[in-house]
Structures are given as C-alpha cells and as structure tokens.
C-alpha cells in the first residue's frame, strides 16, 4: 500500500465544507476509503447523516459521481449502477474506458435494519461493489434512536435508560457474520483509528471480484456522549477493550488483523461515554458482567475460527497491511 506521505498528497474526493459534526466518525471513514481507492469510483449513499450533511442542494461535497435514492435501498441502487456499467462496457458505450469501482456508504440503521434485505439480495446476486457501513451504533440522523447495531445497555432516545430500564435490552446483531455467511469474497471489521488496517482492507476488497463488505466503527460524539476531540481515542478504546474486534473474512478464512497489545477492561469502555454512564451506577453489576462475558465469548469465537481456518489449509491470508499501528 502507498505510504502515508503519498496518501496525504492524493486529492481529497470528499471536499471540506460539508456539514457533518466536528468529530464525526463517518467522514473519517469516507475519506480513508476514498483515499484508498486508486481507481475512479461511483458512490451510492443511503439516507442518513452522511447524505444530508454532504449534499445540501445546490452544494455537494462529493468530487466523484454520487447517488442517493432512499434509506433502505443503497445496495440495490449501486447494483443497478454496476449492472449498467457491465452492459455499457460490453456494448462499447461507456463514456470512460478503464476500471471503475462501485462503493456504497450507509450507516448502521441503513445496513443492519432497513437495508438488510437489499444488501442480502445484492450480495447474493454477486454484483462487484464494496459496501461500507459507517457504524455509529444508532440512528443518529433522526436523533439517536436504537438500531440493531446498538450495544446492550446503551442509552438511546427510543431505548432510554430509566428507573425501570438499563437502556437497550438486547445485544447487537452480528452483521459482519451475517454478511460473511453469504460467502462473498471479502468481509471485514475495521476502525477509524487503524487507518493502515482500514485502507489495506479497502484495497483487498477492491481487488476481489464480486461483492465485498466493510463494517467500520465510527464514533459519534453526539450520540455516544464524548468530546468531539476524542473520536479517535474512543475508537481505539473500543478495540483495546475488545468490544470491536478487528478482523477479516477473505475467501471464507477468518483472520484477526489487529490484536491489542494489552486488553483493557470493558468498564473503561463503558466509563468513556455518556451513553453508558448509567451502567456505572449501583444495580447494573449483572448487566456489566453480561457485557464482559459476551465480549470474551466473541473474542474466543473469532480466535477459534481463525485457528480453524489456519488448520484447514491455504495461505495465511493476505500478506500486506493488517498490522497494528
């Protein structure tokens, strides 16, 4: 992969001046993904923070071809774009010759929940595109409502913490596993603080033929209740506390691409954000234990799958990127 210096000299394909909040994780995801794309791209975008904040008519922050149609249909929309590309290339009617990559950006609401059917359909049909979920673990654009990506015990405006409830009552959906179960060439989890890992994953995803998927943890200062200056630190803490494992599933083989040098306690994660503040008050000990157990169980599961992949043969996965920074 290109050096940081080279990358820093590439033109920004998402221009500054958009209206995303200070400290927004989503724009960091988009910029890192676009910087990793050396080829021309066409972008489809679900309704959400990213869309409304970057394309307020008559302005657009996108210096690449971009389309938003609705909330739940981003995967279907990009599959139409990709289908048109294939047929026009075949018929020799493309306005531009050479490879083009197709990207979809959607939040967790547009991916885990309302967009899951369209995503599953597009994955099964095998369109060549990279779907990037900027995962801020709730419906932030409408005002911090719970989604199926919201973690257990988090406070949201539709699953608020109160005298009779500790916030969200259910653990989050394991969407990366669901996507990987479509047996697509490449699926991965990444985080905004591991830029080298994330951009390496974009390169590997784009090198694959067929649908690929990146689930990127994207802290939201407004929804998670942390300072806007802490976004990268919070993302790092998620990984070091084990609540957001960094791994990939390439051609069916799972590989943990980043292992924290020291595992920090989950309570540090919970203490870092206002959305979990209520859990640290007396009476929620059992829930914290449940969160810790689930974090541990997921880490064990991933390690088991990684060993299984190594034992069942094949190469040891991609040899570039994926190291800790």
């Amino acid at each position: 992969m290109a050096s940081l210096r080279e990358i820093s000299e590439r033109p920004d394909r998402l221009s500054p001046g958009h209206r995303l909040c200070a400290g927004c994780g989503a724009s960091i995801v988009v910029r890192q993904v676009l910087l990793a794309c050396e080829e021309p791209v066409v972008v489809a975008n679900a309704t959400g923070c990213l869309e409304v904040a970057t394309t307020l008519y008559p302005y657009t922050a996108w210096r690449v071809p971009w389309i938003h149609s609705a909330f739940e249909n981003t995967a279907a929309t990009i599959s139409g774009v990709e289908a048109m590309y294939r047929v026009l290339r075949r018929k020799g009617r493309l306005p531009h010759n050479g490879p083009v990559k197709f990207l979809a950006f959607a939040g967790d609401g547009g991916t885990y929940d309302i967009g899951l059917q369209a995503l599953s359909g597009a994955l099964e049909r095998g369109h060549s595109f990279l779907y990037v979920c900027y995962n801020n673990e709730a419906y932030m654009n409408t005002g911090i409502q719970r989604s199926s990506a919201t973690p257990l015990g988090a406070h949201t405006t539709t699953a608020p913490a109160g005298r009779a409830s500790p916030g969200k009552l259910q653990p989050r959906k394991d969407l990366t596993a669901i996507v990987a179960a479509h047996r697509i060439p490449y699926a991965a989890q990444a985080s905004v603080h591991l830029w080298h890992d994330l951009m390496g994953k974009v390169r590997r995803a784009l090198a694959a033929e067929g649908p690929t998927f990146l689930n990127v943890l994207a802290p939201c200062p407004r929804g998670w209740r942390h300072a806007t200056s802490e976004t990268i630190d919070i993302a790092r803490l998620a990984v070091e506390c084990g609540v957001w494992p960094i791994y990939e599933v390439a051609e069916g083989r799972l590989r943990i691409t980043h292992r924290p040098r020291t595992r920090r306690p989950v309570t540090e994660w919970l203490a870092s954000q206002g959305r979990f503040a209520h859990l640290l008050e007396p009476g929620h000990e059992a829930l914290i234990e449940q969160i810790e157990r689930e974090v541990e169980a997921e880490w064990e599961r991933l390690q088991r799958l990684e060993r299984l992949g190594a034992e069942t043969g094949g190469s040891n996965g991609p040899d570039r990127g994926g190291t800790a920074h």
Binding site: P40, V42, E51, T55, L56, Y57, P58, Y59, T60, W62, R63, V64, P65, W66, I67, H68, S69, V81, M84, Y85, L88, L94, P95, H96, V100
Partner: peptide, 12 residues
C-alpha cells in the same frame, strides 16, 4: 453517473 470526467450528485 458513469461520465467520470463530469461527476454529478443525484438525489441531494
């Protein structure tokens, strides 16, 4: 959209 030399935004 596929006219890459003239990027446009659909659906703002």
């Amino acid at each position: 959209l596929l006219d890459l030399a003239h990027p446009v935004s659909y659906g703002p």
